[in-house]
Computed example of a mutant assay.
Amino acid sequence: MATEVSGAPQRGRRQFLGGLIAAGVLPVPSWADAGSPAYLAAGARADGTYLLCGIAADLSVLFEIPLPARGHAAAAHPTRPQAVAFARRPGTFAVVIDCATGRQQARLTCPEGRHFYGHGVFSAGGEWLFTTENDFEAGAGRIGIWDVAAGYRRRGEISSGGIGPHDIKRLPGTDILVVANGGIDTHPDTGRTKLNIPTMAPNLSYIDQGKIVEQAALPHAQHKNSIRHLAVGPGGDVAFGMQWQGEEPVEALVGKHQRGGQIALFDAPPEAVREMEGYIGSIASSPDGARVAVTSPRGNRVQIFDTGTMGLSQVISLNDVCGVAPAEGGFTVTTGAGELRCLRGSGEARAKADLMWDNHLIPV
């Protein structure tokens, strides 16, 4: 009885405040309450602690929020100062963080027999979160569906349209999802071992209202090119970065697709492709869609392609570079050595943090 009495005023206050917010009397929290970050990124300190950070457009670090383990990517709520930080695959947790207060608001746990792939995306209105997952006993990709208003309660799952779904994005102005099915089967019992290289079949799958409405696949000669990361341009064209699983030299590691068409591969000289060492770590489309930037921490390179000519236009050497995101007039990149750089045609802005940045830089 004592518990009920002490809890009642708190519940009443929450209901009262909720009513004021719904009535428009109190302001609804926004990303401005968290310092208006331009980006989110996971990082680690030298002492082994892990963080989710907010980064301003001027490359200053606005906040550092502890994570329970190494992060990979994050999903930023479209309006609230709320982020979901995902564990690196094959992690089974994701944490929902109020970036204005630094408090954990919820923790997502995969159902038994699933693990996250480190990526997720909100619906356009922010009511739903969609997560890429592995049904590792069936060897099939799944998209988890989480109800934001219900405290991120899991409401179900749908097929990803392939094996090994990694990245997931939303097409501009819609709730149509595009999924990068990397094609690689893994199982937690064997760690990150790849179990099906000879038969892997990566694809892009488009999902509308829970149903796969279109798929695009690489030619068979490229079937060992795992489609991993996505960048969506303002016109809805989808650029993707790949990771080569074959022994022979690969023709290309970056491609583009638009619904109703065929996959097209960006062109680069063979030596430029070799410099990426078969591995694209992250990808971004410029705000106007005219350029696509990809990174390789293995090759220590940033490559920028022209989406009109489909050709390579710029190469930048940068040690352990991986995170990349659009910036006004160019791209912002992060490195494992704590560097942040904004690459623009008119020059570079640089900053250094006492952190090791992880794989991805997420626009807010």
Rank of each mutant, 00 (worst) to 15 (best):
D288A: 02
A325I: 08
G289R: 00
Q303F: 08
R344I: 00
D306T: 03
C322M: 11
R301A: 15
V294W: 13
F331Y: 04
R291T: 01
A293T: 09
P326D: 03
M310Q: 13
L318H: 07
G299I: 03
S296A: 12
F305P: 07
G338N: 06
R344T: 14
L343W: 10
S286Y: 05
G329A: 07
C342P: 05
P297V: 07
V294M: 07
G289M: 01
A290F: 01
G329I: 04
L343C: 03
V333C: 06
R341L: 15
T295P: 12
I316A: 05
P297E: 04
V294L: 10
I304T: 13
G323R: 08
V292K: 13
V302D: 06
E339S: 10
R291C: 00
E328I: 00
G323A: 02
G289I: 00
V324R: 11
L340Q: 15
P326K: 07
R291A: 01
N300Y: 15
D306A: 05
D288M: 02
G289D: 01
G323C: 09
T332D: 00
R298E: 04
E339C: 03
E328V: 02
F331A: 05
G345L: 07
G345R: 13
A293H: 11
R301P: 06
D306G: 04
V333P: 09
F305I: 03
Q303R: 14
I316Q: 11
Q314G: 00
L343A: 02
S317M: 03
P287S: 01
V302E: 08
G329V: 05
T295I: 07
G289F: 00
R344L: 07
G323L: 03
G323V: 01
V302Q: 10
S313L: 12
D288L: 00
I316Y: 11
Q303D: 10
M310A: 13
A337D: 10
T309R: 14
P287L: 13
L340K: 11
F305M: 05
T295F: 08
E339F: 04
E328P: 01
A325G: 09
L312F: 07
T332Y: 01
S313N: 03
G323D: 08
T307D: 06
V333K: 07
A325W: 09
G330Q: 00
R291H: 14
V292F: 11
T307R: 14
G311T: 13
G336C: 08
N319V: 05
M310I: 02
S317Q: 15
V333I: 06
D306L: 00
T307L: 05
E339I: 03
R291L: 08
G338T: 06
V333S: 04
E339T: 02
T332F: 01
G289C: 01
G323M: 02
V324T: 06
